[in-house]
């Protein structure tokens, strides 16, 4: 191990990290925006649409992300229709292809998580919403979705970390994010341990921060389920008296 090399390559690696984070943010935001309507349609749409969505989810969950990226980046350019379309300047760009694939990929996983969460919302709460005269969309907006988001959060936290790791695959289509940068410096210096272990440490730190942040969010969103501090003290005191 050569610590000087590790420190010297740190600025380049951090620049790559910044690109990784941009990829992650773009994929997660787009993915979540797609996942919500997909999850609802998966449960509420007509049979044919439900079937198509089920296939979309199982395809993106059942095939490697690498092949999905190659299909979009290399595969789409095969067709003249695509090359002559107005979208071609975008589809030519590796960055665009990576974000598009990542978004479709995480949308499939997230929609699956959300579907489970929506189904886990207690039936009584939905019935109560309807009994109060809420329409279907309103019940979704006011009752079902807020509840489902909270139920989905622990599983979604795993999905976020898994997407962070997935951004490393962007390096296979020439994007110089963290893994791509480390790989390039290794090709020049031939010091794989120094570079890759530093990169791994950066991923671990980001994963730890993301996990902690989502856990804090989970705690905050459950605040109405906790007893207020004063009551908690009283209950604790009661327990003490009884014991």
């Amino acid at each position: 191990m050569n610590p000087t090399l590790m420190i010297e390559s740190l600025p380049a690696l951090l620049q790559g990290t910044w690109l990784s984070l941009q990829l992650l943010a773009a994929a997660l935001i787009l993915g979540l925006a797609l996942a919500v309507p997909i999850a609802i349609a998966r449960l509420e749409a007509p049979l044919l649409v439900r079937g198509a969505i089920a296939f979309y989810i199982s395809f993106f969950r059942g095939t490697p992300l690498l092949v999905q990226i190659f299909l979009v980046y290399y595969g789409l350019s095969q067709f003249d229709v695509v090359r002559e379309s107005a979208l071609w300047p975008f589809i030519r760009e590796p960055w665009f292809c990576a974000v598009l694939t990542f978004a479709l990929h995480t949308a499939a996983y997230t929609a699956n998580i959300l579907r489970g969460a929506i189904q886990a919302v207690p039936a009584g709460e939905i019935e109560a919403a309807h009994a109060c005269g809420m329409s279907g969309p309103m019940a979704y907006r006011v009752i079902i979705l807020p509840r489902a988001f909270r139920l989905a959060l622990p599983a979604y936290a795993n999905e976020v970390v898994s997407m962070l790791k997935a951004t490393s695959l962007a390096s296979t289509i020439t994007i110089m994010e963290l893994t791509g940068t480390a790989n390039t410096i290794v090709a020049r210096t031939f010091a794989p341990y120094e570079l890759f272990v530093t990169a791994a440490a950066i991923y671990l730190v980001i994963a730890a921060i993301l996990t902690a942040a989502l856990r804090a969010l989970e705690y905050r969103l459950a605040r109405h389920q906790r007893a207020p501090a004063s009551t908690a003290a009283v209950i604790a005191g009661d327990a003490h008296v009884q014991a």
């Binding site: 790791k165 997935a166 490393s168 695959l169 893994t179 480390a182 790989n183 890759f196 791994a200 991923y203």
Partner: peptide, 16 residues
């Protein structure tokens, strides 16, 4: 193992 990209682990083992 859970926090590092699989691709990076493969690269570490292969080149390392």
């Amino acid at each position: 193992m859970r926090g590092t990209p699989e691709l990076l682990i493969i690269l570490i083992i292969y080149f390392g």
